[in-house]
Write a protein that binds this DNA or RNA. Structure first.
Lengths: 140, 140
DNA sequence: TTATATTAGTTCTATATAGAACTATTAGAT
DNA sequence: ATCTAATAGTTCTATATAGAACTAATATAA
């Protein structure tokens, strides 16, 4: 195979994986959300409370994109946004009860997608792949 | 590093690489085009004449997306579209003179981006990476 | 031969995403 | 203390992308 196809391949994996995850979300009745919304929620499961800027950093998207993504999560009642009392520029995003309710689903989907993509991969392969991709990312 | 970060990493590489390529295009005065347009042109450099459906297959995008992408390439005079005389359902996309003129630029950009991302990679690393990514893609 | 199915492509609509310009708030310099 | 910088976030606009429904043309089956 042509080694010059690696970027195309990465793009295809990216979009196929997103497609798979979106389908898994729909299977569990989570409609209208895409992977980026899921990444936001997963970060909130881990950190409980994050500002817009922190979230943007975590999921590697611009802050205006975050505004749109979080608006949707608020609309669907997964998260809420409250202004910081200490610094009027900050807004804190936290999970609602409904948001917390879906934690298990998101964890299961994550487990499923990883066991799918890593089918046939040894531990060493998984580590090697991460190592090479990290090196590639740092080159960019 | 968490092996469960591989999809996020792939997404980041994908978008960083696209960003880099778009910047390289702009440096050479090619404005308004993104990587997908470049992929179309590169396929036309190789195959000269392709139908919309064939192009969609080559760049792994839906046919309605192709319609939009090709419209832009026509608008900027990189390609032209002519109906097939044999089968009225097909349209053939071919390069214009201006399109051919930029072949060298696209090839240089491709060479540059690959020498960038593969910095510090041995031949064996490059092959291993392709092998692992192909396996991952087939799993999806 | 004619009816049906398939195929190539477009149109319409929705949306994630980003760039640019903007507001509002806080920090820093003098 | 006041002026300027920086920072957090939003709004506006543009666009790649896809799903669904559509048109037009060809292939297939009866």
């Amino acid at each position: 195979m042509d080694k010059k196809a690696v970027l195309a391949l990465i793009g295809r994996i990216h979009s196929k994986a997103n497609e798979y995850i979106t389908q898994e979300l729909e299977k569990r009745g989570i409609r209208g959300l895409v992977v980026s919304h899921g990444e936001i929620l997963v970060n909130l499961y881990r950190y409980q409370r994050l500002s817009m800027k922190e979230l943007a950093g975590k999921i590697d998207k611009r802050k205006n994109t975050l505004t749109v993504l979080v608006e949707k999560l608020i609309e669907f009642d997964y998260v809420e946004k409250t202004p910081s009392p200490e610094d009027g520029r900050f807004f804190y995003i936290t999970l609602t009860e409904k948001g917390r309710l879906f934690q298990k689903d998101f964890e299961e989907i994550s487990t499923n997608v990883y066991s799918l993509i890593y089918t046939g991969f040894s531990e060493a392969d998984q580590e090697k792949l991460m190592e090479l991709l990290e090196k590639m990312y740092k080159n960019l």
